[in-house]
Amino acid sequence: MAWNTEPQAIALCNSGDLVNSGLAVPFDVVYCGQTCYAFAIRYADRAYAYLNRCSHVPMEMDYQPNRFFDMTGHWLICATHGAMYSPQTGQCRTGPCRGGLISIALTEFDGVVHWHTGPHLQPVVF
């Protein structure tokens, strides 16, 4: 299957669905040819998205469905390894990890959050 190489903005959720340090909105993407889970969160009034895989070992990070923030609401935490990541950058701050989370570009306008495709990131086609 040939992918559209032009970047696309794909509607993900309403802006109000993302609450500061609250539940994530999950979505599926194709990353480097492999279907992966991803998530969007809001932190300090801005939306961010990442692949749902720890950089230490590529396992899903949420400790309960769509819960990624630690008890303080300031760090994204891997439930399996305890690695902690900055919600603004995805960079690892502490724990076992290699680098950081894989970021997914988001934009927010007219009350809707959109994620953006790229050369290694495509929508899942059913």
Rank of each mutant, 00 (worst) to 15 (best):
L101I: 11
A49M: 10
L76Y: 13
F68V: 13
I77P: 05
D17G: 01
Y85Q: 08
A79R: 12
P96F: 05
H74C: 08
M1H: 05
Y63G: 08
M59R: 15
W75T: 04
R98N: 14
G22D: 06
R42S: 14
R67F: 08
A38L: 07
Y63T: 04
G100P: 12
A49S: 13
V30Y: 01
I41A: 06
V30R: 02
Y48E: 13
P7C: 07
T72W: 02
E60A: 13
G111F: 04
L23N: 12
G111V: 07
Q122D: 07
G90Y: 13
W3I: 04
A38K: 07
I104R: 12
L101V: 11
V30D: 02
G22E: 01
P96S: 07
L121V: 04
I102S: 11
G73H: 07
C54K: 01
V124D: 00
P119F: 02
M71T: 13
M71E: 15
S103R: 15
V19E: 01
V124I: 02
E108G: 08
C36P: 06
I102E: 12
T94W: 03
A105S: 05
Y48I: 11
N14D: 01
M84C: 08
C32T: 01
I10G: 07
V19N: 00
Q34C: 05
T117V: 11
A47I: 13
P65C: 09
Y37I: 11
Y31H: 13
V30H: 00
D17M: 03
T89C: 14
L18M: 03
V57K: 09
A44F: 01
T94N: 02
W75H: 07
C36L: 06
S55C: 12
M84E: 09
I10L: 14
C78I: 14
T94H: 01
T94Y: 00
L18S: 05
L23E: 14
C32H: 03
T117S: 14
V57D: 07
Y48K: 12
P7S: 03
V25P: 05
R98H: 11
G99T: 11
R46A: 15
T107S: 15
V30L: 01
S86R: 12
Y31S: 03
C97S: 09
A83Y: 08
G33W: 02
P65Y: 13
G33C: 03
M71F: 10
G99P: 08
A49H: 11
P65T: 14
R98W: 06
P7F: 03
G82M: 00
M1T: 01
A24H: 07
T117P: 10
T35L: 13
V125F: 07
A105E: 10
G100R: 12
A40D: 05
S103W: 13
W75V: 05
Y37T: 14
A24Y: 09
F68R: 08
Y50I: 15
D110F: 03
T117H: 10
L12P: 03
D62N: 10
H116Y: 14
L121Q: 04
C78R: 10
N66C: 04
S15D: 00
F27D: 06
C97N: 04
C78A: 14
D17A: 02
W3S: 04
R42K: 15
A47L: 13
R67N: 08
C36V: 10
L106G: 07
H74Q: 11
V125H: 09
D45M: 10
C36D: 05
D110Q: 12
A44R: 08
C32K: 08
E108R: 08
V57Q: 10
P26S: 15
G16Y: 04
